[in-house]
Design a protein around this nucleic acid. Structure first.
Lengths: 350, 350
DNA sequence: TTGAAAGCGATACCAC
DNA sequence: GTGGTATCGCTTTCAA
């Protein structure tokens, strides 16, 4: 109930506060011994007393004095988005093993909220930031860098010098989806996309058109850019599918989960079904992809790897130097296939 | 780059640190004036200087001195579980508006990790805890309460005195699902469940059996408890459906999302389909539920409300008293229906 | 309205 | 190995 301080422990153990501090911060050496300049017997006594008294370090005090907070902040656009949630969970996990605490927050795609969050996090003395920036967020992030807080960008890129980056190669993802369909024997492949101009999408589009071109299928290339607005999109997708039947289209690439949902809806409406009328390659994760066996092929990003690389990169930026040419990490997306005959779906690259 | 302290601001503005502290902590009155015992002119000058120098409060110092951290911790079993992710996002949002910082963590259903996390959070001087406890987690949570850290339980209950609780009425949810099917004209209703003995499930089971009994359908009541192991469950569910066809079953209640997934799989395998062969009432959220129009009826928990109530309850526990009889909040689940004719699905209660 | 000064609890630096 | 003590930056009496 009452708070036990380092002083109480020192008095009770008959040693100085310095000793107690040493002991409490000592890490285990590989031999199981504490690696600190303290007599093992003294250390043991201190440990015993600390435990008996129920001592717990006051991190605020430690942080104030040492200037280190042992915490990092992760700011994504939406914590509830499964994509980000999974990354967050992994980052939290890795950080936890390292004795770090993570503070999460959602910017809600709002640059002002992002700016405010950065201020808040700075106020908490976080040692670094991992951010999935929203449009127009570069100002806020530059501020963090200027203050001297290392920042790692994930998922999306914004211009700026000091940032670390862990990004996924979306051009390659687009190429991969297309090539997979070639391997299945399809040539009449189309892509649905948005009018939006975000790089993750345009990169996937570019991958698709490039792969088609390289395969000599430039004339078959059909990239449909529909409205982002949900209702308009839904209608637009239905139109595309209606025409696609007449056109003899064999396969579609659906570069976001939502586009895939609209497409399933369109199939429903038009009385079409998946293996018979078209083949799909989707993106991200959905229960629907997993429903069929084999699963509907879908491109996933390496979430655990994004988490791991971004935290590691941040750590290295925090203590000491990361050479400029190692500040950007590019990861490859994977294609999930299979899951028939009792075998789990597996990841592949093309 | 260099850190600006309250002292620097005081010196530059020609006032004492006390004044600066007052000004920096003043809240806006409703008239737009700062409500602190400081001359408005002085205050304005201080504000101006603070801004010019780029002053930011050192929260570690403030927290050390005042004993308040303006932060709470949320510990769930898995941050990436959409159910928890959504709750977390909402809590973070509410807390943020209140000037609070939230630290999230996953216990991974591991009581030891939970205990460790509680220690960590305590070390961070969090003012309170919101926890979805794992089995065997009560020890760790009692510790928090003993130390004097208010704790609110969500989603699952564990025994213990001091806790606040925000729980969902799962018996009612089971009743509601059953009654809805009555309204649709079905009487031969069965439920799939696990052998597991967690209260959220057993409560739903109880609601189902009770509703059936009350309707004089005791003889039609069929509660299938299958193995929790994924492979066994998958096979078990297929068996149930195969027999159900012979039996003339009209509807199924599927009290978890996973059971719903197994059921969809079984339909696939057996060549059955949803409106024709059976009716379903599912639980939680899935893309699959939304695919059909009208959507597959599903019972959802009021996630935003759980977030709001739990944070509010915690706040009230932190400052001052919450009468013992207000320490438990029970919320009602809702049934999601509709979504046809261009109308969005809506929530209903039965 | 304003200011001086006493800590909050740990770490870091220096002596021994 | 061990101990004394000056901070870290802020809030909070208490006086003026």
């Amino acid at each position: 109930m009452k708070k036990v301080t380092i002083r109480d422990v020192a008095r009770e153990a008959g040693v100085s506060v310095t000793l107690v501090s040493f002991v409490m911060n000592a890490k285990m050496g590989k031999d199981g011994r504490l690696d600190c300049p303290v007599n093992p017997n003294t250390a043991a006594r201190v440990l015993e007393v600390a435990k008996r008294l129920g001592y717990r370090r006051n991190n605020a005090a430690a942080s104030l004095r040492s200037g280190k907070s042992h915490s990092v902040a992760v700011i994504v656009s939406d914590l509830a988005n499964p994509f980000f949630a999974e990354i967050c969970r992994n980052i939290e996990n890795i950080a936890y093993k390292d004795g770090y605490t993570v503070i999460f927050a959602s910017s809600e795609e709002n640059p002002e909220k992002l700016a405010h969050l950065v201020e808040t996090m700075v106020g908490y003395n976080v040692e670094g930031l991992i951010v999935a920036p929203c449009l127009g967020g570069e100002k806020a992030l530059e501020r963090a860098t200027n203050i001297g807080i290392p920042t790692v960008l994930i998922d999306r890129d914004v211009p700026g010098d000091g940032f670390g980056r862990v990004l996924v190669d979306n051009v390659d993802a687009g190429v991969m989806a297309t090539k997979y369909l070639f391997h299945q024997g399809f040539g009449k492949i189309e892509m649905l996309s948005y009018k939006l101009g975000v790089t993750s999408l345009t990169d996937r589009e570019f991958g698709y058109t490039k792969a088609m071109e390289d395969a000599g299928l430039k004339n078959e290339t059909r990239l449909h850019r529909i409205d982002y607005d949900a209702d308009a999109a839904k209608r637009g997708v239905i139109e595309v599918f209606r025409d696609a039947v007449k056109r003899g289209t064999e396969a579609f690439i659906l570069p976001t989960k939502k586009l895939a949902m609209y497409s399933f809806n369109a199939l429903n409406v038009l009385g079409l079904n998946l293996p018979n009328d078209f083949s799909f390659v989707c993106f991200d994760e959905s229960d629907i992809y997993d429903l069929k066996k084999p699963v509907i092929p879908h491109v996933v990003q390496p979430l655990a790897e994004i988490a791991e690389k971004s935290f590691n990169l941040l750590q290295r930026m925090v203590n000491g130097e990361v050479p400029e040419d190692e500040k950007t990490v590019t990861l490859k997306a994977k294609l999930v296939l299979g899951g028939r005959f009792g075998v789990q779906p597996t990841e592949a690259t093309f």
